[in-house]
Computed example of a mutant assay.
Amino acid sequence: MDFTEYSIEFLTIALAHLFAVASPGPDFAIVMKHSIQYGKRTALITSVGVGSAIFVHVAYALAGIGLIINATPWLYDLLIIIAASFLIYLGIGAVQSQALVSTAAIKESSNPQLSDKKAFLLGFMTNGLNPKATLFFLSLFTVVVSIDTPMIIKGAYGVYLAFATAAWFCGLSLVLSRPYVRDLFSRNAYIFDRVMGLILILLAVNILYSEFGTRFGI
């Protein structure tokens, strides 16, 4: 098997995932909350829980792609439209993002410690039950991953996405658990969020153009 032939597919997935995971949402909120309230260790364990939940999304996304495309081609087009619309929705929401409320007044010492098990489960459930994550991974694998891509390659994509997600949030945990960084990030995170929003919108437009542009002679 020549793994290099799937390099473009992988890079597309990795790039789309980077844009999505970098945009603040429920996962960011729980990691930030735990970083501020409980400190580095709890936030890191929470981040591992968030990353582990990616396996759930990838599993059902991969399990249904082949059946959906083979049985109902028109549904594939519908999913393309839904996927692009969802990315545009996320992008517009991110572009309209406002500055976060300062967290400087929250004191870590006033909060009881969270057990490692509970921290992991909170991270896992936050991502696993996030409907936006569900639709994102379903649309991502439907749009980008070819039906002819071997399952071992698809599985490798899933492993990467899980570890990349955990690594991203672990990195955020290390940064957000620093007291002097918290206020700075809370005041300026919306700027980064707006940039990510514009990128998501452009990605959605590119998806629509790639799938329908040729058909309608655009």
Results as ranks from 00 to 15, higher is better:
1 M>P: 07
3 F>P: 08
6 Y>G: 10
7 S>A: 14
8 I>N: 15
15 L>F: 13
18 L>Q: 09
19 F>N: 02
20 A>V: 11
21 V>L: 14
25 G>I: 07
27 D>Y: 00
28 F>R: 06
29 A>E: 09
29 A>L: 15
31 V>K: 05
31 V>G: 10
31 V>E: 10
33 K>P: 07
33 K>W: 05
33 K>H: 12
37 Q>R: 14
38 Y>I: 06
38 Y>E: 10
39 G>K: 01
40 K>V: 08
40 K>H: 07
41 R>V: 04
43 A>T: 04
43 A>I: 06
44 L>Y: 11
44 L>M: 15
48 V>S: 15
48 V>R: 13
49 G>S: 02
50 V>L: 12
51 G>W: 09
52 S>Y: 02
52 S>R: 03
61 A>M: 02
62 L>Y: 00
64 G>Y: 14
65 I>M: 01
67 L>H: 10
70 N>P: 00
70 N>E: 11
71 A>R: 04
72 T>N: 15
73 P>Y: 05
74 W>I: 14
74 W>P: 05
77 D>Q: 08
78 L>M: 11
78 L>K: 00
79 L>P: 05
79 L>K: 08
81 I>C: 03
82 I>W: 03
83 A>T: 14
86 F>D: 06
86 F>L: 13
87 L>K: 11
87 L>A: 07
90 L>N: 11
90 L>D: 00
90 L>R: 02
92 I>F: 12
92 I>H: 05
95 V>W: 04
96 Q>G: 06
97 S>K: 02
100 L>D: 14
101 V>P: 05
105 A>P: 06
107 K>W: 00
110 S>F: 09
111 N>F: 15
114 L>E: 14
115 S>E: 11
117 K>P: 08
119 A>D: 12
119 A>P: 02
121 L>W: 14
123 G>E: 01
130 N>H: 05
130 N>K: 06
135 L>T: 12
138 L>G: 10
139 S>A: 15
140 L>H: 09
141 F>I: 03
141 F>R: 04
142 T>E: 01
143 V>E: 07
144 V>G: 03
145 V>H: 00
146 S>K: 10
146 S>F: 08
149 T>M: 09
151 M>P: 00
156 A>Q: 11
157 Y>F: 15
158 G>W: 06
159 V>R: 00
159 V>I: 12
159 V>D: 04
159 V>P: 00
161 L>G: 07
163 F>V: 15
163 F>W: 14
167 A>D: 08
168 W>R: 07
169 F>Y: 10
169 F>A: 13
171 G>H: 04
171 G>F: 11
172 L>V: 13
174 L>S: 05
175 V>F: 14
177 S>D: 01
180 Y>V: 14
180 Y>S: 12
182 R>S: 03
183 D>L: 12
184 L>I: 13
185 F>T: 01
187 R>A: 08
188 N>S: 12
189 A>W: 08
189 A>L: 13
189 A>S: 15
193 D>Q: 12
194 R>I: 09
196 M>D: 09
197 G>Q: 13
197 G>H: 08
199 I>W: 04
204 A>T: 00
204 A>P: 04
205 V>Q: 02
205 V>F: 14
206 N>A: 00
207 I>C: 02
208 L>W: 09
210 S>G: 06
211 E>D: 03
215 R>N: 00
215 R>L: 05
218 I>E: 02
